[in-house]
């Protein structure tokens, strides 16, 4: 097989596997930008996956499933929002509880749903004409689905909002210096609520992608720790949607290659590769000079109360 086919298959798989990572990472970037650390990504994802699957199964429409996944993810994130913003509880504990609650609840609700094939899953589409473009055609326009394109579009939109609009300034201000934002008349809690919900919606959608598009089936614990990769990717991205896309795709490429390269490289080594990559990047970021310039939102994990500072 030529090197070209190698690249095409690898990049095409990168898009397919990277999409749920990307969706959830974009959401978590917004959540953290507003100063809320949500470690409940895994829980919101699996709730989204369960909601999407059960809805798609009962209605026969995978698209309704994705919508349900997003809604349930958003609703589920409200628990964290209420605990950490309104009640000012410890965000780490609240987020971890959300993950545990999501894994447990979806497991109980999902009893009896395993082993059922979906009547219809999100279709893979091949754009006539476009797929004939050499090299890029088979990667981008063959066998991908609409959610893949939607997530790429979302990168552009979310990047633009964050850096080029007043809404983005408000989000960043709330995450960097909530007292200053408050004095400018921005409602800190409202912004934080909305950003947490955006994070939940996108995590839920990512879960839905897994259960009705990527591998249409429900199994307990099917997100398999993806939510934790998302937390790492958010840091890797310096809380920037564009870098988030790069990170999600890099991780996805390494993940796919860890199976593809097995005939030549030791599988134990390959298995560790994507995770080693994440750790090395995290170390580099926490030590580098970049850290000061592009570091975490200053008010991350800090609840805000007016007049306390």
């Amino acid at each position: 097989m030529g090197w070209e086919t190698w690249f095409i298959v690898t990049l095409s798989r990168t898009l397919a596997y990277g999409t749920p990572l990307l969706l959830a990472t974009l959401g978590e970037i917004y959540t953290e930008r507003s100063g809320v650390l949500n470690l409940g990504v895994e829980g919101m994802m699996i709730m989204g996956a369960y909601a999407a699957f059960s809805t798609a199964y009962t209605t026969g429409s995978p698209w309704l499933g994705i919508v349900a996944g997003a809604l349930v993810g958003g609703a589920f994130s409200l628990i964290h929002a209420f605990a950490s913003i309104t009640l000012k509880a410890n965000q780490v504990i609240s987020g971890l509880s959300l993950t545990m609650l999501g894994l447990g609840l979806s497991g109980v609700l999902g009893r009896g749903w395993e082993g059922r094939p979906l009547p219809a899953s999100i279709p893979e589409i091949t754009a006539p004409g476009l797929s004939k473009i050499p090299f890029l055609g088979p990667i981008l326009f063959e066998g991908q689905n609409l959610i893949v394109y939607f997530s790429i579009l979302l990168v552009v939109v979310m990047w633009y909002i964050l850096y080029r609009t007043r809404i983005g300034i408000a989000v960043r201000a709330v995450g960097e210096n909530p007292a200053a934002a408050d004095s400018l008349g921005i409602s800190v809690n409202k912004v934080r609520y909305l950003c947490t919900i955006v994070g939940g919606i996108l995590a839920g959608m990512a879960g839905g992608y897994l259960s009705v598009a990527y591998r249409p089936a429900w199994t307990e614990g099917m997100t398999g720790g993806m939510g934790w990769i998302v937390i790492a990717l958010t840091i890797f991205a310096f809380w920037n949607p564009a870098i988030g896309m790069l990170g999600a795709y890099l991780f996805a490429a390494l993940y796919h290659l860890s199976f593809r390269l097995q005939p030549w490289v030791s599988p134990e080594l390959l298995k560790a590769m994507p995770y080693a990559f994440a750790i090395i990047v995290l170390i580099a970021i926490s030590r580098g000079t970049l850290h000061k310039k592009m570091g975490a939102p200053a008010a991350l994990t800090l609840p805000y109360s007016r007049g306390e500072e």
């Binding site: 596997y17 897994l210 993806m226």
Partner: peptide, 11 residues
């Protein structure tokens, strides 16, 4: 691991 099984099969 559905994701690992999927990517291994694709490979």
């Amino acid at each position: 691991s559905p994701t690992a099984a999927k990517e291994a099969t694709e490979a």
